[in-house]
Amino acid sequence: MVNQVEPKLIKPLFEALQKERFVTLSTVDFETGGPNVSAISWVYAKSEDTIYFAVDNRSRIVQNINQNSLVVMNVIANESTYSISGKASIKVEKLEEVPLKLALLELKINEVRDVMFYGSKITVEPQYDKTYDKAAADRLDKQVMDAMKKA
């Protein structure tokens, strides 16, 4: 069976990306020209063809995207693993209403590919705990997600 390839987010992926979740983001390293993979959690599907994500505006991710806009976001959802490729750009250099210096980046989707190996499915999605003050983490997460939704 051939893995599915779509030009935009399928409904279960769009719904999964309506809240903070663990994803990995691959960029082209601005110094080496090789791959650079980062784990991020502030992601939000603005539409079926656009994903917003927030990172520290001093992040290597920002430096890499400034040099080469091609990215791949890996998402585990809907009992599978998806590779979402496209071009990313800085939409806002510093999100307002957020106490940290976070940049808002926009991924314009070119392709969504189901990359799960044949004959298998994901039975447990990745989970994580914030290791700092729970109340502060919840407040910050809400501020960031609200700012992304307003953008």
Rank of each mutant, 00 (worst) to 15 (best):
E15G: 04
N110D: 14
L95P: 09
E111F: 00
V98H: 05
T131D: 13
Y52D: 09
K19E: 14
V71W: 00
S80Y: 01
Q127A: 10
L105F: 00
M116R: 05
A39P: 12
P35H: 01
L102F: 11
A103G: 08
A39Q: 15
K130F: 07
K19D: 15
V43A: 11
T131N: 11
I61C: 01
L105P: 06
S120F: 00
E31L: 10
L107T: 05
P99C: 00
A103I: 09
E79H: 11
V23F: 04
S26A: 15
R58H: 15
Y82M: 04
V71T: 07
P99W: 03
N64P: 07
S41M: 08
F14Y: 14
L102H: 10
V115N: 04
Y118F: 11
A16Y: 02
V72S: 13
W42I: 00
E79F: 05
L70Q: 14
I122R: 06
E96T: 14
E48L: 13
I109T: 04
L105E: 08
R113Y: 03
F14L: 06
Y82P: 11
P12A: 00
S80G: 13
D29F: 03
I65A: 06
E125D: 11
A16E: 14
A135D: 14
T27M: 06
K130H: 06
L17F: 03
K91R: 13
R113W: 04
R60E: 13
K108G: 07
V23I: 15
D49A: 03
E111R: 03
A39T: 15
K46Y: 02
N110R: 08
I84Q: 07
D129E: 14
V28A: 08
V92C: 05
S120C: 07
D29T: 10
V72K: 08
V71D: 07
Y132Q: 12
F53Y: 01
V71L: 02
K130I: 14
L102D: 02
L100T: 12
K134A: 02
V115L: 03
I51E: 05
R58T: 15
Q67R: 12
T24V: 08
T32N: 13
R113N: 09
N36L: 08
E96C: 01
P12E: 02
T27C: 02
S120I: 05
E97D: 14
N78R: 01
P35E: 13
D29Q: 05
D114K: 04
I65K: 03
Q18S: 07
